[in-house]
């Protein structure tokens, strides 16, 4: 639909309204504004730049298709981020079906591994610069299984409560708590390892 609007000067709600009427340029402006944030969230969940690129674009396509359902109860960013998380979860499930689970993952799922890890007594992130810390956290997140990273990301970065995570991921609250506990303990150990390796 041709439009004479100056899209870059419009706020998100106005762009959403225009896009809901079929204005693709308005939607393109929304994509341009939020694409980095969406891509970053995809990257955190998928831990692969290629996969993040694919799923982020898929999320935008889904957002366009469901735009009529957006009633403005939350911000557009919250809404598109939710769609993105669901697309990431779908992709992670597909990936999981395609690969055999490793013994390590089976152990993690069974629980108990985290209880054998000694408590990290020194703060592993102390005296690290922000950029350095971000890199170390990224590396440590990459070593977690998809299931544990997902729960951690949803809790720490998406700030979801246990119940909400359980609903989103499709598991029990008990599983969420157990995965989160493992993920945190493993992350603490990995960060300590990374610090000691220097």
């Amino acid at each position: 639909m041709p439009s004479n609007l100056n899209h870059s000067s419009l706020e998100d709600p106005a762009l959403v309204k225009a896009a809901q009427k079929g204005d693709m340029l308005a939607f393109e402006e929304l994509v341009a504004r939020h694409r980095d944030k969406i891509y970053a969230r995809c990257y955190t969940m998928m831990h692969s730049e290629d996969a993040a690129l694919d799923v982020s674009q898929e999320a935008w396509v889904k957002a366009w298709q469901r735009l009529a359902q957006f009633q403005g109860d939350s911000t557009f960013t919250t809404w598109i981020t939710r769609i993105t998380i669901n697309v990431c979860l779908d992709q992670l499930r597909k990936n999981k079906r395609q690969r055999a689970e490793s013994i390590e993952e089976l152990n993690e799922e069974a629980g108990g591994v985290e209880r054998l890890m000694p408590v990290v007594t020194v703060n592993p992130t102390e005296r690290l610069e922000r950029g350095e810390l971000r890199q170390k956290i990224d590396a440590a997140l990459g070593k977690l299984s998809d299931e544990h990273r997902t729960v951690l990301v949803l809790h720490e970065f998406q700030e979801m409560e246990y119940k909400e995570i359980a609903k989103t991921v499709g598991c029990s609250i008990g599983t969420v708590m157990s995965r989160l506990f493992y993920a945190r303990r493993k992350l603490a150990a990995l960060l300590a390892e990374l610090r000691n390796a220097e």
């Binding site: 341009a32 980095d36 970053a40 690129l53 990290v120 810390l133 990301v153 303990r185 992350l187």
Partner: peptide
């Protein structure tokens, strides 16, 4: 304490990463 430190380490430290494609190509 360990759990608290880990949570604090993560707060606000999501990797900052940008789309490695131009606006036009991505769109």
């Amino acid at each position: 304490r360990e759990l608290k430190q880990t949570r604090a380490a993560l707060a606000g430290f999501e990797k900052r990463i940008t789309v490695p494609e131009t606006r036009e190509f991505y769109w």
